[in-house]
Simulated assay, not measured.
Amino acid sequence: MADSRPDPESEPDSVFPREVGLFADCYSEKSRFCFCGHVLNITENFGSRLGVAARVWDAALSLCSYFESHNVDFRGGDVTITDLPLVLEQIQGNVQANVPPGGRAQVRALSWGADQHVFPGDYDLVLGADIVYLESTFPLLLGTLRHLCGPHGTIYLASKMREEHRAESFFQHLLPQHFHLELAQRDEDENVNIYRARHRGPRPA
């Protein structure tokens, strides 16, 4: 299959160039994305070690596009980017390549249901893209979201609505038990939903 992305040395000619290359072991690809007037250079390190964590998924691009269309301004915020420990090196490299010196972005390991309590429980904004895909982790993810989101905070989750992963069950049955949930956007072409959630009642201790 041919790679349809623009030449890395040229300016991006679409807002979100699409990755259509096939997976293979131990190789890296550089992708360029334009978000809110900024060009982002993202390295994706494909191989068996990182697995699905290596790439930029459609739901992440849909979430970026949503914020761009609503003119959301993230400047000035303290940002914490989380993932499992084996992914942090790739994330840190991409942060260093795209965040100007002095930018307030830190990268930390987070395992749902295990160590969320070492993080503050009052984030104003919690974002997640394509993290709802393994049913056995749904209770752990829910508990983590309940801890991280402040009482007046907002969660945005973008998800490919895969039937085989029971994503609809998480959003229709589990999440509404603790959060007021709204469907903020539906992308029929990509089968991606973006949900906005806020706490229903008292926070867990």
Rank of each mutant, 00 (worst) to 15 (best):
L174I: 05
S48P: 11
G121Y: 00
F67S: 02
P139D: 08
N98G: 07
P139W: 12
R75E: 14
P120S: 11
V126L: 12
H173Q: 13
P12R: 01
D189G: 10
A158V: 03
N41M: 06
S10D: 15
S10F: 04
F33G: 02
G51R: 07
R75N: 12
V95R: 06
D58V: 10
E135G: 03
F35N: 00
T82D: 13
I81W: 00
N191H: 06
R203Y: 08
A24E: 14
V72Q: 04
P17T: 05
E89D: 14
S4A: 07
S111M: 14
S62N: 10
V99M: 07
L50N: 09
Q90G: 07
F33S: 02
D189H: 09
F119D: 02
F171D: 01
G153L: 05
L110I: 12
A2S: 10
A197W: 04
H178F: 14
P17A: 06
D7G: 06
E89I: 09
H173D: 14
R108N: 11
Q177L: 08
Y156H: 15
S48T: 12
V56F: 02
G121I: 04
H152L: 13
C34G: 00
T154F: 00
F119Y: 10
L181F: 07
Y133N: 10
I81Q: 06
L142R: 05
S159C: 14
H117F: 10
R5T: 15
F138D: 01
P204L: 14
P120N: 08
L125A: 11
L141C: 08
G201I: 02
A97L: 05
H70L: 14
I42K: 07
Y123S: 06
R200K: 13
T80P: 00
G76D: 06
E9V: 15
R186S: 11
L50R: 05
A184C: 09
S136G: 13
M161S: 02
Q185W: 05
R18N: 05
P8K: 06
H178S: 09
Y195E: 09
P202K: 12
D78S: 12
D130P: 10
W112T: 03
A109Y: 09
R104F: 08
V15E: 09
R162C: 07
L174N: 03
V52H: 11
N71S: 15
P100R: 11
H173P: 03
E29P: 00
E44L: 07
W112D: 05
L148Y: 01
E182Y: 02
N71Y: 09
L125W: 08
A105D: 03
L140Y: 08
L181Q: 08
V95D: 08
T154D: 06
L181N: 01
C64T: 06
A24Y: 13
D73T: 14
L86E: 11
N191F: 04
